[in-house]
């Protein structure tokens, strides 16, 4: 059973997978410290990447550690900004201002929908 699903399923149309929330909705948390320039930078970078790659299939929660230190304690966050991909499993973390899109996608295990070279808007 497991072996079957390990392979890509070619006859399932791509939009169908997009519409299945249980399989594809990305639950993201972004921990930031206050409203520093780096915080704004990280939020902007993340929103852009999500709109490009995960449009319509992500939920983003932004948490300020100065306001909710206990949440940072519970999630054992050290660095800010820290992006956590809670779903789909496995749990992944990306730290930094998320300026390196490839690393963010790698960290979130998202394969780009389109090749960035095809789309000049990505630059």
């Amino acid at each position: 059973m497991g072996a079957i699903f390990a392979f890509p399923v070619p006859d399932t149309p791509f939009p169908a997978r997009m519409n299945d929330p249980s399989a594809d909705t990305y639950l993201l948390k972004l921990y930031v410290t206050g409203t520093s320039p780096r915080t704004r930078q990280a939020i902007e970078n993340l929103q852009r990447i999500c709109e490009q790659e995960l449009r319509g299939r992500y939920k983003l929660e932004i948490i300020d550690v100065l306001e909710q230190p206990q949440a940072a304690e519970d999630d054992r966050i050290l660095a800010t900004p820290t992006l956590i991909k809670q779903l789909p499993l496995p749990l992944r973390r990306v730290i930094g201002d998320l300026s390196d899109k490839e690393k963010v996608l790698f960290g979130l295990e998202v394969r780009p929908v389109r090749n960035p070279d095809d789309n000049p808007r990505d630059r």
Binding site: I95, D97, K103
Partner: peptide, 17 residues
């Protein structure tokens, strides 16, 4: 948990904790 670094960061969360 695997951690990927993408850009500059600080340890603001640690300090806050």
């Amino acid at each position: 948990t695997e951690v990927v670094e993408s850009g500059p960061f600080d340890l603001g969360a640690l300090l806050a904790r």
